[in-house]
Nucleic acid binder design. Structure first.
Lengths: 180, 180
DNA sequence: CCACCCATGTAACTAGTTACATGATTTC
DNA sequence: GAAATCATGTAACTAGTTACATGGGTGG
């Protein structure tokens, strides 16, 4: 994919350290992208070499924290990349392979797995709904939202739509697998 | 993920050559998994080394086609793997990074991209609906389906649910991006 | 002072992509 | 006889994961 560009978007929204990025990419941004700290540090170093970002030691903290900031060259690169047209790729879903295995070889315990997945979908959905309330529905009327805020809301909406679909499908599938 | 296991499931459904697998993994199975021929040949060689599959030259054809077949050791391994519980991973969706870039930096031409994505969702949905009619709805009553067929139908259903959600979301998002 | 979190990194490995290569067979 | 497709592979590269390492700061 393109982790460096994802990192730059995040840094434009707010400059921070590699460690902070790792936290973000395990949480909020991690809704649709996850990355380990090892990978983030490596990419940040490469990006600095290319002149897309610059870093400086954090004055305020006593630790060896380095704050990264996106430079103009980085913004230009990000614009170029985001405007590129890319065909949507089919997602690899390992679970479907398991399901096919269950179809071909007989029950393999995927019923329990389905029950677990239903729970996860419900949890995520509840979380997204809470964020929706907090950040997009209470704050202002939908009509008075800025374009930027509307787009940010759409990204959350994607998560909601995805989890709703996944939940519906998981429940259907659970009922079928139950009948061994 | 685990390409070897995906290949074995496919070979259990029907023994065939690496070339045939590459065709399948670019088409029907490619609904949820894609793989290049290079990767497939490499994996088949490894799997044969491990004793999961065996291959023999195709008698019928004059070419140097090799037909692969799953061995007992392969079936055992597949069962073991499919029963393993694995946490669902958040999918990386590059497009959301682009959207965030558009939110942060202003219009970058993603409206056209959205229009294109709506078309793709519609096409895929139409295709899945056609397969649904052909393989699952006309053939027999849903009640009289075997467990195996029901599971196979659920895999297609996943594609339908996903595309429906994606289409709905894309239309919403298109309307928002249109207002530059 | 011990455990835990902050903060950064290296090294080795695994999976996946892109580019290149080759020869045989079928189709026009 | 040329072009397309069948059928197999190698090599080099890129992205991502796992394991390991280190040292400082904070709270009990």
């Amino acid at each position: 994919m393109s982790l460096p560009h994802a990192l730059m978007v995040s840094l434009i929204e707010k400059s921070c350290s590699g460690y902070d990025l790792a936290q973000r990419f395990g949480k909020s941004i991690g809704f649709f992208w996850q990355a380990s700290h090892q990978q983030i540090y490596r990419e940040l170093a490469k990006m600095e070499e290319k002149g897309w970002v610059k870093s400086e030691a954090d004055e305020e903290s006593k630790t060896k924290k380095r704050i990264y900031e996106v430079l103009d060259a980085g913004r230009i690169e990000l614009k170029r990349w985001a405007s590129e047209s890319v065909e949507p790729v089919t997602q690899r879903e390992e679970f479907f392979v398991r399901l096919r295995a269950e179809a071909a070889l007989g029950p393999l315990g995927l019923v329990d797995e389905m029950r677990h997945r239903i729970q996860i979908h419900e949890q995520k959905l509840a979380l997204y709904r809470a964020i929706e309330q907090r950040d997009f529905l209470s704050k202002a009327h939908k009509n008075s939202m800025t374009r930027e805020l509307k787009i940010q809301y759409q990204i959350l909406r994607a998560g909601i739509v995805y989890e709703e679909g996944g939940l519906k499908w998981s429940k259907e599938t659970y009922e079928i697998l139950k009948q061994e």
